[in-house]
């Protein structure tokens, strides 16, 4: 089922969109790629600050809520830019990307990072409020921070590996 979906002609059709050709055959590709790297680095640099705060390693003088309020907009902004530039690159080689193990890992790890974030803000929200100013937050919060840090490093590694397989 998944196998069929990944090998559907649909992905080739995407590669043949005029936009895909325009990006793939011009300086648009390296331009989008460099913006993608800058946005991804900003995303990880910003979210790592929150993760290290959750771990009780850095920025412990600031309440979690303050850091979240002031840093998360940058994380989301960077995520949007990385997604748009990433899609721009994806459509130029959609059919090979969807069957590329590194790309599949990247999407999988991105999904896990998203689930971890949902878990932190939904299931752990009471804990998050209770430990807002605690320099060493509850173990479950620290674990969520560690998971986020590792998952985003994994997304970067898998993302960088995509180019070594195609």
């Amino acid at each position: 089922m998944l196998e069929e979906l990944l090998k559907a002609p649909f992905w080739i059709d995407i590669e043949n969109w005029p936009l895909s050709w325009e990006i793939g055959g011009t300086s648009w590709f390296p331009f989008l790629e460099s913006i993608h790297v800058i946005a991804a680095a900003l995303l990880v640099g910003a979210i790592a600050t929150i993760d290290l705060r959750l771990l009780g390693v850095g920025a412990v003088r600031y309440p979690l809520s303050t850091l979240g309020r002031e840093i998360l907009p940058w994380v989301w902004g960077a995520f949007m830019v990385a997604t748009i530039t990433g899609l721009g690159m994806f459509i130029t080689r959609a059919a090979s990307h969807v069957v590329n193990p590194a790309f599949q890992w990247k999407i999988f790890l991105l999904a896990l990072a998203g689930i971890n974030m949902l878990h932190l803000h939904r299931s752990l929200s009471t804990l998050l409020q209770a430990d807002d100013t605690r320099s060493k937050p509850h173990l479950r919060l620290r674990l969520a921070g560690l998971a986020s840090l590792l998952l985003w490093c994994g997304v970067m590694l898998a993302g960088r590996w995509v180019g070594h397989i195609v």
Binding site: V37, I38, A41, G45, A46, A48, C153, M156
Partner: peptide, 9 residues
Amino acid sequence: ILGIAAIMG
């Protein structure tokens, strides 16, 4: 790239 992330952060 993680180094660049640290520069951004």
